[in-house]
Amino acid sequence: MSYGVIVFPGSNCDHDAYNTAGKLSSADVRYIWHKESSIPSDVKCIIIPGGFSYGDYLRCGAVARFSSVMNEVINFAKKGGLLIGICNGFQILTECGLLPGALLRNKSLNFLCRDTYLKVNNSSVFTSQYGEGDVIRIPIAHGEGNYYADDNTLKSLQDNNLIAFTYVTENGEESSGSNPNGSALSIAGITNKQGNVLGMMPHPERYSEELLGCSDGLGVFESINLAIS
């Protein structure tokens, strides 16, 4: 079994994702170039990494969504394969409809590159190795991370317990100051109803070992490893 890391022109967190996925287990990790038209059969989890695919032209993720590999990624997810989109990956997943909603410009209009604190909902396969309600420190780096969805969709996310991460203060409280980008319901990450697709704006792969200053993001990859082992 192995991980597949999708690489678009403009991806820039692909190596971080590759490194983090690879050091945790004996799983192989392979890059999958966006022009590929198939996913290797031993791939059990696909990571769509952060970056600026196709220069963010038109809208973030709008062009990447039509790359030839994306049809296969969509099929992979529809068959129940685990799929995680981080930052630009999350934007791509909303553009192709695998996750609901969209990511708007940050409310402040600033590109934000800093640590955030997230409250974890550990009921998903992507977060099972955290404790319920754990507060973790994970960095964000985005200009368009302001999660938007209409009221019905937001209610559905809440009713179905699909909000995996919310922005909070260091003490785990939601406040106007803890939401960095204006996201509805302070949403930092969501899963689909089937539970096999996660999109999140913060970068767990950037805080995956103490050498990087923090390892709070490792739990996401440990959870995936448990699910696919």
Binding site: E95, A102, Y148
Partner: peptide, 8 residues
């Protein structure tokens, strides 16, 4: 399909 995102 492409030029606009009808969600927003």
């Amino acid at each position: 399909k492409l030029l606009s995102n009808t969600v927003i």
